[in-house]
């Protein structure tokens, strides 16, 4: 184990997270990556490029799609038909796994979970937050979504239907939130800034600046 040796090496250069004694699974990751490159399964360049592509993804891309949908009804229609195609109009490559938009409306609030693993529209909005992958969220979101939303600070009236989407299969879900009241004067960039990661999962709603 890493505890037995490896702690006492000198670190002449600036330490960072990679310098800490590696865990068993970190070693496994590095070894598997090295072997796969050596065997020609993929190249080191392809691995680097993929890491850059992963780093390049963030909720900001999804926010741009939502903001454009708020500003442009025709675009909104296309988002509801095919998020991947609509995103590509904005120069965003959301990959080939189909992403479906579920639109909030007066009296309807959508919430996304994956009870079986942690399916998430990561090719559009990046890697999921820790809580999305947690036992608590995955267990409870389907059965007591209102209690879960309350923990996030979102209290919904009982007249509003809460609709949970369990992403069990080949589709990924993106909540298309409602444009908040008081946002009429905002341009698209300012609108996008209101759309947080949680708004697109359904655990928050966008709010216009006071």
């Amino acid at each position: 184990m890493a505890e037995a040796h490896g702690h006492d090496h000198a670190h002449p250069h600036q330490p960072d997270i990679e310098d800490a004694a590696p865990s068993h699974y970190q070693l496994m990751t590095e070894a598997v990556a090295g072997l796969l490159v050596e065997k020609g399964v993929f190249t080191a360049d392809a691995l680097r490029a993929m890491l850059e592509a992963i780093d390049a993804k963030s909720p900001a891309d999804g926010a741009r799609v939502v903001a454009r949908a708020w500003a442009d009804d025709a675009f909104r229609t296309r988002v509801l038909e095919d998020v991947n195609a609509a995103a590509s109009e904005l120069g965003i490559d959301a990959g080939s796994i189909p992403i479906r938009a579920v639109a909030n409306a007066p009296g309807l609030h959508n919430l996304v979970v994956c009870t079986l693993c942690s399916c998430y529209p990561r090719l559009l909005i990046g890697l999921p937050p820790d809580w999305y992958k947690s036992r608590a969220y995955r267990s409870r979101a389907v059965r007591e979504p209102r209690a879960v939303l309350r923990e996030f600070g979102l209290e919904l009236p009982t007249e509003t239907v809460v609709r949970v989407h369990d992403s069990t299969a080949d589709l990924r879900y993106l909540v298309l939130p409602e444009r908040p009241a008081g946002s009429d004067s905002l341009d698209e960039d300012a609108l996008a800034a209101l759309v947080t990661r949680d708004c697109m999962i359904g655990t928050a709603r966008p709010r216009a600046p006071a």
Binding site: V142, R143, E144, A147, T158, R163, V164, H165, D166, D170
Partner: peptide, 18 residues
Amino acid sequence: ELWGSGEAPGDDLVVDLY
């Protein structure tokens, strides 16, 4: 249908099934 009683009468859930 899923739980016997939900938190609010209109609430529902959508799952993708083969």
